[in-house]
Design a protein around this nucleic acid. Structure first.
Lengths: 172, 172
DNA sequence: CGCAATTCAATTGCGCACAACTCAATCGCG
DNA sequence: CGCGATTGAGTTGTGCGCAATTGAATTGCG
């Protein structure tokens, strides 16, 4: 992974009383999306290392977490928990099945639905994954309370963004 | 985009004085990575809408932001600013070049390096992009100060994660 | 100077994200 | 009941992210 660049520091960012100019906003905007992007990928990098010997990718780990917590689920439900659609989940679940961690079977009462269930091997993996969260939390260097606060803030932003999306396209 | 699922709320999360069990950590871990993932993709969704009529994707927009701010840059520098390597940037820059927004030319003084520069069209796009940041910030529903705080927290975590990565693989 | 090590961009291969589409199963209304 | 609309999973195509490799240019050490 490439080293951190000297993060482009803003020359200054005084709390000016007047509305900031577009140039100012462009700068802040860049910082926000940079930071979020970077943080997301930094997490991905850590998970990649931690999950390597489990043979899981980060999104696959998320799916396994959902199954460990909720048991057998149709693809639809998994997608709701993870905000993923079938275009992403179908091939991912196929790979998990090929790895022997899950089964996929058409639901008898609704032939459209596919139920995903853990194999013994998939359930057993939960034990080996037990140490991942602690190591991840340690790697963030933040106390648990701050992480919880970060999570709350992120959820708030996500909700706001989701509700804002429909209106954006139409706007002026 | 699929609707927000009823976010799997933890039954409770009391501030227990004793170290939380692995199961507890597994839950928090899931929440953190869920939230960050979700936030990142929610931002992506908003940018996708906002950038649609500019003909840019979100990562392409990030590259343009860097060029608008810093002028001509070698691929290496762009990668440092954005934490991206040539495997990502090379095809992306080719697409920007095909769109007529940038030029790519071997540097005369170092034939290994490729300098990326804005075309007139690429520079002109900056004006049309001027309204994007304001609309994005509005969509987050957060005041600028909170976003700045969020950014600072994210940068802190990113730095911690980056420095932690090298040690992780070797651990116990 | 000469050659090995390094640097930079590009390429390949794999997996994920998402839009757009297909297709079968199910639902629901007349 | 019959038929159009909806639902759920899968497929296709495009683009990103990253590891690993290639190949050319440059650097630097003996």
């Amino acid at each position: 992974m490439t080293a951190l660049p000297d993060l482009p520091e803003p020359p200054d960012l005084p709390d000016l009383p007047e509305p900031p100019a577009d140039a100012e906003l462009l700068r802040l905007d860049r910082q926000i999306c940079f930071s979020l992007n970077a943080a997301s990928r930094a997490f991905g990098g850590v998970y990649r290392v931690l999950l390597k010997d489990l043979g899981l990718t980060y999104p696959q780990y998320l799916v396994m977490l959902v199954l460990w917590e909720h048991g057998d689920l149709p693809v639809k439900r998994i997608g709701e928990y993870l905000r993923l659609d079938s275009g992403t989940l179908s091939p991912l679940l196929k790979r998990l099945e090929a790895a022997g961690l899950v089964r996929r079977e058409r639901s008898p009462e609704d032939e459209r639905s596919v139920t995903v269930s853990l194999t013994d091997e998939g359930s057993a993996l939960r034990e080996r994954a037990g140490r991942v969260p602690r190591r991840l939390l340690a790697a963030t260097g933040l106390p648990v309370e701050e992480l919880a606060a970060l999570r709350a803030l992120l959820d708030q932003v996500t909700l706001a963004l989701d509700t804002a999306v429909p209106g954006l396209a139409a706007e002026d």
